[in-house]
């Protein structure tokens, strides 16, 4: 299944709440302000790293670019555009949004 988070990890518990429930083999897409969760050397990105071996992480490239954090995010994340976002949402179901 696909989980979508769109809130900043330092302003919302959405990331923590999602990570607690995401099962092995599921995908998590970080979009809008959730992209900030990927900045290296932060509590949020280290939590994400702990789940990388069992969950696939995606982020929307336009959100990274808008926020000026392209150079700051951890490796191992698949950066996708809007077309791949649509494909992802169509190929994985159900979809759960955390906001």
């Amino acid at each position: 299944m696909l989980h979508i988070i769109n809130k900043s990890p330092t302003n919302s518990p959405a990331l923590k709440q999602c990570l607690k429930r995401a099962q092995q083999g599921s995908s998590i897409l970080l979009m809008e302000d959730a992209a900030y969760a990927l900045i290296s050397k932060t509590e949020a990105s280290s939590q994400i790293k702990q789940h990388m071996n069992r969950v696939s992480f995606y982020v929307l490239e336009p959100d990274i670019k808008a926020r000026g954090i392209g150079e700051k995010i951890i490796s191992g994340i698949q950066r996708i555009g809007y077309n791949d976002f649509v494909k992802l949402a169509c190929s994985q179901h159900p979809v759960q949004s955390w906001f």
Partner: peptide, 23 residues
């Protein structure tokens, strides 16, 4: 303060998300 520091980051480019880059 808090998440309010994010708008001050350099090199923002919000053209692709359809919003004005006000930085």
């Amino acid at each position: 303060l808090d998440d309010g520091v994010f708008p001050l980051l350099k090199e923002q480019n919000s053209g692709d998300i359809g919003l004005k880059d006000f930085s």
